[in-house]
Design a protein around this nucleic acid. Structure first.
Lengths: 328, 328
DNA sequence: ATGAAAGCGCTAACAG
DNA sequence: CTGTTAGCGCTTTCAT
């Protein structure tokens, strides 16, 4: 058994209340304080957070539930969240759902049992729609994907706008037959598709889009098929880092180069996009800011729960590289 | 205030003990059980984990303290750890230290206050040596870096052996003037250096190694200087993914290609190493296995605390790619 | 300034 | 099978 406040009290010859006061800088005489501090050192006492939380009724804990921390987007966001938590004296519980609704549900329950102070959540479409059923009694901020409007605060990218940037750029570079590849589990994929389709129409072009599982292998298979097909597209727009990876592999495996064989543009400015071939044109998301803003929204709502529901839409930046060089 | 076991008891017309028994599948009559379950549903009751932990005196929580979750090595390890925890019904608290000893100390204290069941820890050299001072009363498994022998269980890569693989390969490919670049904050860097130096000597070559801060920018600056210098090396061995990134950038920035301008070999089989230039020759670490093994050691020690201290040394796999093609 | 005592939500004896 | 009760470690009145 570990040493408790009682042991410290005994050691210092005072009551537990006095120890507690010393710990919280309450009213304690200088001499007593010294004795208590000495006793703490001697016993190696460390407060028990479970007991504190039970007594104080707040957990000082933020939940962070994402699909997969290995996705660099979430990795970066999680660092920003942890940083903000650290400065607010809070801790973070991290959960990976693999976009699996069952696991999302399990972890939402866990968040309730932990009595988290607040939750930052990137839900699948499925759970997003069912979120109201959970009767969560702490504030939730959605990131990356937003739910039915008006229910929860959210921080998202201007997905449609970002797609537009990519399509406009490709068109300006002389590309016409531009295929789109989008993830099929999140609202993000849908929004990016819609922006793509709208931009294509505006340019008088015909969108040709496919929704696929958000994994590199799926994208690789699909792009390989496109490249082997009879009417190979000139360019492809790809809706996230994983799919971009698959597309890149497919182009290389086909022995082609960018942009001659296929121009490629996508989302997520991951480390490697700068290094592969002529560099990949991508939308850079303000990842750090997304995490920090989510935490800021959370803290504001904890202060005042009568705030209107806010949806913060941040813009992506188009990083232009060689994979979309002007069509010759 | 959230609903407690008391509210459920009142709602069901039973005592709190009966509710508790129902929750833990204790001896409760079928009819009562139904009434309680109904009450739980009606009230939306969720057990309070702080209270449970206080009462039961175990936290069902694993601490995971790493330098930076954005480092893909730790990202992958953390997923393996979380997976094992998930299956054992445990939670994971994740902390990033940025290799900062102050922050390490703070988080070690937090681990004590959380009364974690066990800790998985990648310490800096500084903290590693001072670890015994903390009097941690839970098992610790070190990963990636091991401390003074005999104190804590550890799961590490055969770093020296992996360096040897790289040097032997480079020499076999015809390279002689092979420079080494190693991180200066962890024991890992030291071991990789030692393996490199020993292998060089064995081949009758002179090691020329530098220890630098484990950041891409530092490696980029250093390799740029090497390339601009009068006696440019033929090849470089680089001790982790971040440094590898910096080295790659430097080669590109100098307008050179691999391996003609500079052959490059390093550690960590990150996604992009396959895609950049002719592909990078790297040591692939069994990341998933490292995390899983660390958790296995932890659980074993929880079962029996009289086990001898174990250090599991896993071998890396050398993935040969174009960046070290035979010297012409 | 200090101590005694209640109680946060829960589980585990112990009684019945 | 079920209820009563004590107590996990801590903070916070309420006295003194």
């Amino acid at each position: 058994m570990s040493v408790s406040i009682k042991d410290v009290a005994r050691h210092a010859g005072v009551s537990v209340a006095t120890v507690s006061r010393t710990l919280s800088n309450g009213p304690v005489s200088g001499e007593t304080r010294l004795r208590v501090e000495e006793a703490i050192r001697a016993t190696g006492y460390r407060p028990n957070l479970s007991a504190r939380r039970l007594r104080s009724q707040h957990s000082q804990t933020i939940g962070l539930v994402v699909s997969d921390i290995r996705n660099p987007f979430f990795t970066a966001v999680s660092r920003a969240v942890e940083e903000a938590a650290y400065h607010a004296g809070m801790r973070v519980i991290l959960c990976n759902t693999d976009e699996n609704p069952d696991r999302e549900e399990l972890y939402l329950r866990l968040m309730q049992e932990e009595r988290v102070t607040g939750l930052i959540f990137a839900p699948t479409r499925t759970t997003c729609e069912a979120l109201h059923r959970f009767a969560l009694d702490f504030p939730v901020v959605l990131i990356d994907r937003s739910g039915p409007p008006g229910l929860h605060d959210a921080v998202v990218l201007d997905n449609a706008g970002a797609s537009t940037l990519l399509v406009d750029h490709l068109v300006a570079q002389g590309y016409r037959r531009i295929h789109g590849l989008f993830g099929n589990t999140s609202t993000t994929g849908v929004e990016r598709h819609d922006g793509y389709a709208a931009a294509m129409h505006r340019h008088g072009l015909t969108p040709e889009a496919t929704f696929i599982a958000p994994q590199a292998a799926a994208a690789e298979a699909h792009v390989t098929a496109l490249l082997e097909g009879t009417d190979r597209p000139e360019a492809v727009v790809v809706s996230n880092g994983q799919l971009l990876l698959g597309a890149t592999r497919a182009v290389r495996a086909a022995g082609l180069t960018m942009p001659d064989g296929l121009a490629v543009a996508g989302f997520d400015n991951e480390t490697w996009t700068e290094l592969v071939g002529p560099g990949l044109t991508v939308i850079e998301q303000p990842v750090q800011e997304i995490g920090a803003t989510a935490m800021a929204l959370l803290f504001e709502r904890l202060e005042r729960d009568d705030l209107p529901v806010r949806k913060i839409v941040l813009s992506g930046r188009c990083v232009i590289r060689g994979s979309t060089a002007a069509r010759s």
